[in-house]
Amino acid sequence: MRALLLLAALALPGFARAEEAPLAVPIVIPGEIGKDACSTQGRLMGRADQDDQTIAVRNGPGDNEPFKEIDRLREAEPVLVCERLGGWSGIVYGSDLPSCRTTAVLPVTREYVGPCQRGWVPSRFISTDAP
C-alpha cells in the first residue's frame, strides 16, 4: 500500500507539468506595472457550421500543422484577449477570469503560463466591446 501511495505521489507532479505544457506559439504579455495585459474582454460567437456550437482552441495561430487543437469552448464563453497575431487572438480563459493574474507586477514582458488556461482562436469568433 505504501509503495502505491509513493508511486501516486511521484506521478502527480509529472501529470501537472504535462497540463502546463507550453504553447507552440506562446501568448506574450507586456510588463507595464499595474496594467492589465489582457484588458479586452470578449465572448466567443457561435459557429453555424459546428453542430456542438463550440470553437476549437489551438496551441498556435493557425488551422494546420504544427498547430493542434488543445481544447473546445462553448458559444458565449467569456475570454480575455491578450494578443492578436494575423487573424488570430491569444486568449486566456477559465471559470474565474479576475483571478487569471494578467496584471503586470514586474516590468518584464513574459509568456503567460497561468493559472488560467490559454490558447489561440480565430479573431472573427470573438465579440468584444473594445477594438
Rank of each mutant, 00 (worst) to 15 (best):
G87K: 11
Q50H: 12
R72P: 06
F15Y: 15
P26E: 07
L73F: 05
K35E: 13
P78I: 05
A3M: 10
G62W: 02
F67H: 12
R58H: 06
W88V: 04
G86H: 09
E19W: 10
A9M: 13
P13E: 07
A9N: 04
R101P: 03
I91V: 15
L106E: 15
N64L: 13
G62S: 08
D63R: 13
G42D: 00
P131T: 11
L85G: 04
I91L: 07
R47Y: 03
D49V: 10
A24Q: 14
K35V: 10
V79E: 07
L5D: 09
L5S: 10
V105R: 14
P13W: 07
L6M: 11
C38M: 07
Q53N: 13
C116G: 03
P115I: 01
E83G: 01
L80K: 10
S99E: 11
V79F: 05
A3N: 12
I91C: 04
E65L: 14
I33V: 15
R124M: 12
I70T: 12
I126F: 07
P98R: 07
G60A: 05
D63A: 11
A16F: 12
C116D: 01
R118K: 09
Q41L: 12
I29T: 07
F15M: 15
A48F: 13
R47I: 07
R17F: 13
R58D: 02
G31N: 05
L23A: 04
L23C: 05
A76I: 07
L6Y: 10
I126Q: 00
G94Y: 06
V57A: 01
L12Q: 15
G62T: 08
Y93M: 06
G119I: 01
A130S: 14
Q53F: 13
S123M: 07
R47M: 11
R17D: 11
L23Q: 01
P78R: 09
V113N: 01
R47L: 09
Y112W: 07
D36W: 03
S99F: 03
A56L: 09
V28R: 11
A3I: 11
S89E: 02
S39H: 13
L85V: 11
D36S: 09
P22Y: 04
L12V: 15
V81Q: 03
R74C: 07
V81A: 03
V57D: 02
V57F: 04
D52V: 08
G87Q: 14
I29H: 02
V25D: 01
P115T: 03
I27T: 11
P66M: 08
W120N: 05
Q41G: 08
V92S: 01
D129E: 13
G90E: 02
R118W: 00
Q41Y: 09
W120I: 04
L4I: 10
L12W: 14
D71P: 06
A56V: 12
V92D: 00
G60N: 01
V25W: 02
L7N: 06
E20P: 02
A21V: 06
V108C: 07
W120R: 02
V57W: 02
R101F: 05
G94M: 03
L10Y: 09
P13I: 04
G114R: 03
S99T: 13
P98N: 08
R110K: 15
R2P: 00
G34L: 05
S39Q: 09
A56P: 02
E77R: 13
F125G: 00
I27W: 00
P115R: 06
G62D: 05
F67G: 01
R74D: 14
N64Y: 12
I27Q: 02
R110A: 11
E75I: 12
D96E: 14
